[in-house]
Design a protein around this nucleic acid. Sequence first.
DNA 1: ATTTACATTTACGTTGCGTAAAGGTGTATA
DNA 2: TATACACCTTTACGCAACGTAAATGTAAAT
Lengths: 253, 253
Amino acid sequence: MEYTVQKLGRLAGVSTRTLRYYDEIGILKPTRINSSGYRIYGQAEVDRLQQILFYRELGVGLQSIKDIVTAPSFDGTKALREHREKLLEKREQLNELIANVDKTIALTEGGIIMSDKEKFEGFKQKLVDDNEAKYGKEIREKYGDETVNKSNQKMNGMSQEKYDEMTKLAAEVNETLYAAFKTGDPAGELAQKIAVLHRQWLCYSWDSYSKEAHAGLAQMYVDDPRFMAYYDEKQPGAAEFLRDAIFIYTGTK
Amino acid sequence: MEYTVQKLGRLAGVSTRTLRYYDEIGILKPTRINSSGYRIYGQAEVDRLQQILFYRELGVGLQSIKDIVTAPSFDGTKALREHREKLLEKREQLNELIANVDKTIALTEGGIIMSDKEKFEGFKQKLVDDNEAKYGKEIREKYGDETVNKSNQKMNGMSQEKYDEMTKLAAEVNETLYAAFKTGDPAGELAQKIAVLHRQWLCYSWDSYSKEAHAGLAQMYVDDPRFMAYYDEKQPGAAEFLRDAIFIYTGTK
DNA sequence: ATTTACATTTACGTTGCGTAAAGGTGTATA
DNA sequence: TATACACCTTTACGCAACGTAAATGTAAAT
């Protein structure tokens, strides 16, 4: 059976360009060239192409493949072992990349909330990071990446629940805030309820509570434009109102 | 603080070529060009370069990075998520590649021995393969790659022991063969001991033994140049001697 | 005879720079 | 002050493995 470029291409599932390229780099030359200059491939070339594609699927470079298929007694196993090492390294790099991307996504999503958490240092990712920094290398060496990743996921999972509670509470704070804002009275019952809710919300990330810190945070809501933007998004003036309510709650002058 | 290409390059750990390239593709342009045509970078450019390098470390392409760092309110998280998906796909591909390379190494290592096994169809890798083919996909979906790989390793491990026993026995056959060869008598005690050892060795990969098959195999040792090469490596004529001994042992004419 | 399908070669584009080559600038030293 | 030496510039080829035209010739079918 003889094949032209396109026939062989269809047979093997490669483009004609690929076959011409393989001819060009001397990795697979046609049996002969017919009178019109067409490339004609025979059975030997079909077999060889299959070999080439096999190694190509393994991710081996064409130059290495050339060595493998042209040299009569080339040590293919050795080449494959070296190639395997490279692949393992690549996978390690990829794993690190993915982990970093995950961290970055976690850091940036939630945006302002994240900055919030960062300032409070009650940051779940930070915990994971610290854990990583302290034990990551050893644990990875002992139990392999999978274990560590699972552990991190677990930690993220746990924190996730907490985080969801926090978010829920935060939503309640916001809703109540806008309702209280309409009353115009930061000393009123609704406004003071907000202060309590807000305190509860804080305690998810604070180890210990103090009125001074609470008040300081309330002032920061007004001073920091990012928090201003967050609270004032739906209701301009809400940030000041919240601060006033908390000041009254904490007894700040 | 102002920097020239080289200073900034050293600061950030990139080549001057890289900085010029970033200028060329419009991803990081210097603050100004001085009278001599030198590129001068300021603080803003330092910060931006750090951003760029950060995303680059994540494996994001420069064009995407350009979108991220140039657009004021670009959805970086979304871009990262998409990038993450690509990375996960890549890792999957890599996993498959590595698995294939492993298989290939297993198939080719041992060379002639491997062909032997292949013919006998008592092939350990084949078992793994079949297991893979039957349950691999579902198991992988259920328990993840790590579990499957461990399982395969375990299977390989088990077969490894068996394989080691086989190898040991094969070595014994060989040693005895060369000793018996010197006697020149395939019907002698030593030669017949070889036939017994060889039968034991066969039973590691044969489910049932028959004298006919044993004799057929012995004939193949002579007919197949690869087996010839294997047995005749140290002692030309050893393949025929072994066949003769087995013929006598099995009572073949 | 014309269309259609297939063949050819040549050559630029892709990604992210490395690596010259050929030349101008700034500063320290003999 | 000349000169060495470090630093800057632009231009441009090279890399891997083809994709994608463009321009053109050939075989087969209508």
